[in-house]
Design a protein around this nucleic acid. Structure first.
Lengths: 170, 170
DNA sequence: GGCTCCCTGTTGTCATGTCAACATATGATC
DNA sequence: GATCATATGTTGACATGACAACAGGGAGCC
């Protein structure tokens, strides 16, 4: 079911001036894909830098702290499926957390190990959570609750569309 | 000016069940920062993969094709400032495009070179633009024009907030 | 001309997350 | 037990984009 959105919503066109575009191309300010990409990337990078300098771990490791708080005893592949992130990244992050004494693995079967946070990991999680919530508050500065709800809904719909896109990609 | 959003909007809490969270933590489905990060990352990666396999260049290089269409004769730092991406990445991308015969530089002064697309670069831009617009249409599948407008506005406000956040970060 | 400050673009390094490859374990079936 | 299909987690290589460091150019001032 395709919407009737015109591509022109998202483009800039040559305007005859010497300073204008040489040909029709994507607008950096009106194209949602451009904006989404920039916003996601910038927020992630800024947060990662902050976590690294303040807490000594990066964004990926913070995600695993959250995941293991959500579901203690997770395996690598369960975490990867749940978060929707590649198992290679999960595996590496858990190794790092283990090295830092923030997570530990209890053997399930020969391969499938069950990861949980250590006491130090739980304390770290709590401290970073405060920081993450503060960052989120500032990211949402100026938004009403209704707007936040709409934004959250839109992003979830976009994630659904991305999954559909991926499933039909060549 | 802080909004009155409760953190509880974005958290999951221990619910007393054996399967529930061990402590309060971020919700993967209701936290806008989590959703934004995931959506941005997944879309970018999927698009990059597609461009690479179909056209032989990645997402960063596609961005430079757009930038040089928008503003022919750009310098590295002008492009970096305009797009808001680090000059190291811009410099490397332009070098790659030059190697592929898609862009060329005309000397400005001794340091500041002015980059433009070659004829091959312009043709490549046109072909990828069709693909990019198609991907965007599918990303926005199910959205009304009003919703797209709202989403675009929200993302722009978020980018503004990210800039404010960066400026006040420790 | 000399000095200082600011700017330019390149190169190095790293975190993030992907796809690919792989060794090997597990489960189902016979 | 043997065989096969599938799953598990690790490791390699790479694109993206950041920050850091740096050599050196250009402009302004004395």
């Amino acid at each position: 079911m395709t919407t009737d959105l015109s591509d022109d919503l998202f483009l800039v066109h040559p305007d005859g001036t010497a300073d204008g575009p040489a040909a029709a191309t994507l607008s950096f300010t009106r194209s949602p894909t451009v904006l989404l990409t920039f916003a996601g990337n910038r927020f992630t990078r800024a947060a990662a830098r902050h976590y690294q300098s303040e807490f000594g771990i990066g964004a990926m490791d913070w995600r695993m702290l959250v995941m293991l708080t959500r579901e203690p005893d997770s395996s690598v592949s369960h975490a990867a499926r749940t978060i929707g992130i590649d198992k290679a990244a999960v595996s590496r992050s858990l190794r790092r957390l283990e090295t830092l004494g923030l997570a530990a693995a209890r053997d399930g079967d020969e391969r499938r190990r069950h990861w949980t946070l250590t006491e130090a990991g739980r304390r770290m999680h709590g401290r970073i959570l405060d920081s993450a919530l503060e960052r989120q508050r500032r990211l949402l500065d100026g938004f009403t609750p209704e707007e936040v709800d709409a934004l959250t809904t839109y992003l979830r719909r976009i994630l659904d569309n991305i999954e559909t896109l991926g499933a039909t990609d060549p």
